[in-house]
């Protein structure tokens, strides 16, 4: 079956500044299903933002295609909303105006009053109400700014929501609250999300599936790790789940060691990402007929 979003043989090369070429990644292929929350983890510089900008249609790959709903993506579109780490708000507009900017662009025939009402609704969902709405981004804390960005993105109901390290610049406490808010606003929707992060715990809390990238150049999506922790999840709740440490250890090992070991070009073509399912709970009632791979060894 074809995925809702399918990335096929994506290759990105840049001039390396010394006359040669830098291959960021080569023949990357993976898919994302409708309604799925997929997080991509990898070291800085491996090409995560590059992939995201291609998905957003903001830049073109050297070769390969991205298909959404079966159609090749070309150029940016309201169907693919983006939240960047910084600067995705327009600093001369108030918090409310930043959201109405998006809603107005999406629903061009709506009346002004309706646009404002809808914008306020989504701002309230991320805990922003009253006076704060009239402040300019510079007068808001980093956390509030990202809340506004998230409200604007969700209010536009994109088919695919792209988040590039949205909480990377926030302190740990603020990050925690906003993660909760993101989960809350996401839970009520069928929103498909593709998110980049550095933070393993954030990835486990939010994701249905985590894509692991090896170090660049010639980075590739080596594994797709299913998060076998049931929803709804909370930051304190997931820690008590038996699968939490198995998954976390796997991710820590990957980022600490295997992302380096697996790095480099694979002779004979880039293989598709390997599916990893870690489940130590054993006889779950919903266990599939086909035996699921259990706590797979990581040193292969």
């Amino acid at each position: 079956m074809k995925s809702f979003l399918s990335v096929e043989n994506l290759t990105q090369r840049y001039p390396d500044g010394a006359g040669g070429t830098l291959t960021v990644f080569e023949d990357a292929s993976f898919g994302i299903e409708k309604g799925e929350f997929v997080v991509i983890l990898g070291h800085s510089g491996c090409g995560k933002s590059t992939i995201m900008n291609i998905l957003a249609g903001l830049s073109d790959p050297s070769s390969g295609v991205v298909k959404m709903d079966g159609y090749a993506v070309s150029g940016p579109s309201l169907d693919r909303g983006v939240v960047f780490q910084n600067y995705s708000l327009l600093p001369w507009l108030s918090a409310l105006a930043n959201v109405t900017f998006g809603v107005q662009a999406r629903y061009r025939d709506w009346s002004r009053a309706r646009v404002v009402e809808e914008s306020k609704k989504y701002l309230a969902m991320v805990g922003l109400e009253g006076d704060v709405l009239n402040r300019k981004p510079a007068q808001l804390s980093g956390g509030m700014r990202q809340r506004v960005s998230i409200a604007r993105a969700f209010a536009n109901h994109p088919k695919l929501l792209l988040l590039d390290e949205p909480f990377g610049a926030l302190d740990a406490l603020t990050r925690g609250t906003i993660q909760d808010e993101l989960l809350k606003i996401w839970a009520g929707t069928e929103q498909t999300v593709f998110m980049i992060t550095h933070d393993i715990d954030e990835a486990i809390l939010l994701a249905d599936r985590i894509l692991l990238m090896t170090n660049g150049p010639f980075a590739r999506v080596a594994e797709s790790v299913e998060i076998t922790i049931p929803r709804p999840r909370t930051r304190t709740g997931i820690v008590d789940h038996p699968n939490y440490y198995a998954i976390r250890n796997h991710l820590v090992h990957f980022l600490g060691q295997r992302s380096r070991d697996l790095a480099g070009r694979v002779e004979g073509g880039t293989p598709p990402p390997e599916t990893v399912r870690l489940d130590v709970t054993g006889g779950e009632p919903d266990a599939e007929a086909e035996p699921a791979p259990r706590l797979r060894a990581v040193n292969h």
Binding site: G57, P76, S77, V82, F84, S88, F101
Partner: peptide, 10 residues
């Protein structure tokens, strides 16, 4: 980034 905001909003 601001130009990209405009682009992603078509």
């Amino acid at each position: 980034d601001w130009v990209n905001v405009a682009r992603t909003h078509e």
